[in-house]
Simulated assay, not measured.
Amino acid sequence: MMKMIGQNSLNRKYAIAGILFVAPAFIYYLAIFFYPLLSAVYSSFFKVNILANQYTFVGLKNYVETISSQDFQHSVKVTFLYIGMFIPIIMITTIALSIFVTQFPSRISGFFIVLFILPFISANVTAGMIWNFILDPVLGIVNNLTGSSLKWFRGADTALFSVVIVGLWLRIGFDVLILVGSIRGIPPEVYEASKLDGAHGLKQFFYITYPLINPTVVLVLTLEVIRSFRVFGEIMSTTGGGPGGATKSLMIYLIKDVFPLSYGRASAVSILLVFFMIVLSLLQRFLKKNVQY
């Protein structure tokens, strides 16, 4: 009996210690994420005067005005165009580079990974300055070497693709790092057995490598789609949403157009973005259930 009481007391102490360790992170999460989310949901139903601290209930008016706004619809279109260009390129490039890197010994592949990851750890402003110089229509390295007359960031037809280039430069290293780790986790015996069965090159990739890294590919795909919905830094540091709104994504529309004028509508736009994120998260869970491990 005394042994059971002592064991229960020890378990209680472990439970209290666990709660104390988790509490700071939980409080941080409530303060930084949960409270602002609830505040945004609440404010989205009001016309808000922040300076006077006045809240006038307007119901769904902020949502109706936002969804019916041509500027909002244009920003959604730009965001989806960005996703449509960015996602296929980065997924194909990431998988190809990951396969390429894993063909080398650890030291050499490590050098490549460090080379790829350097842009990822650089600031968006720095990336914007670098690529503004590289793709400058007059002084830029690309136009001077190729003799091209493309306006890149300054042309309405080329600005969004130019931003995609910056996004690829910033993100590929992170994705390659994840996929290389997944590929390295495939047992060498699997490849040796496949060679005995006559599988080489592309056959090994399509029948062994890709099926085994498929869950990681789905993870990377979901992360990049979610990030693409929130794309902001590379646009703000290069085009600022121009020229003529050609690169005005949802986040640019929210920060530059809506937030300075209407806090209530800005909250509504934020909640719509959160809704998009939830849908994508549910889609990822659905895809994960249908991939083969």
Rank of each mutant, 00 (worst) to 15 (best):
I32P: 01
T146L: 11
F153A: 01
L38E: 01
N290V: 06
F111M: 12
M85V: 04
N62G: 06
M251K: 05
L160K: 03
V190C: 05
V163R: 11
V217H: 08
T247N: 09
V258H: 06
V166G: 05
F206G: 01
I50Q: 11
L283I: 12
G173P: 05
I32R: 08
T158L: 00
G59T: 02
S194F: 07
K248C: 09
A193K: 08
G6N: 14
W152H: 01
L51R: 09
T56C: 01
S9T: 10
I141T: 15
L272Y: 09
L282I: 14
F34G: 00
D157C: 00
S43E: 15
F133I: 15
A268K: 11
G242A: 06
V190W: 05
Y55V: 00
L160Q: 02
D71H: 03
N143F: 04
Y210V: 05
I208S: 03
N11F: 10
I90S: 04
S262Y: 04
E234P: 07
L30K: 11
R107K: 14
D257F: 01
H200I: 08
K13D: 01
L81T: 07
I99A: 12
L196F: 09
L20E: 03
S162W: 00
I252F: 08
I213H: 08
L150G: 08
Y55M: 10
W152N: 01
G6F: 06
L221A: 11
L145N: 04
G244K: 12
A31Y: 13
V22T: 14
L145Q: 06
A159R: 05
P187W: 00
N290I: 03
T56F: 02
F232M: 11
I134V: 15
S122A: 14
I117F: 14
I95E: 07
F229M: 06
N8P: 00
S182F: 09
D136E: 12
L168D: 04
T126V: 13
R12W: 13
F46K: 07
T93R: 02
F26Q: 05
G185W: 02
K13T: 09
Q54Y: 03
I27T: 12
F275G: 10
G167Q: 11
F112N: 03
P188I: 12
V164D: 10
I278R: 08
L283Q: 02
V163D: 07
Y293M: 10
K13N: 07
L219S: 12
F206K: 11
L145V: 13
T93H: 00
F205T: 09
Y210C: 07
F275R: 00
T222Q: 02
I172Y: 05
I32D: 02
V114P: 00
G167K: 07
Y42F: 15
I32C: 04
L145R: 01
I89H: 04
K203Y: 10
Y263G: 13
M129H: 01
T238R: 10
T126P: 00
I16G: 03
T79F: 03
G264Y: 09
L170Y: 06
G244S: 13
A96D: 03
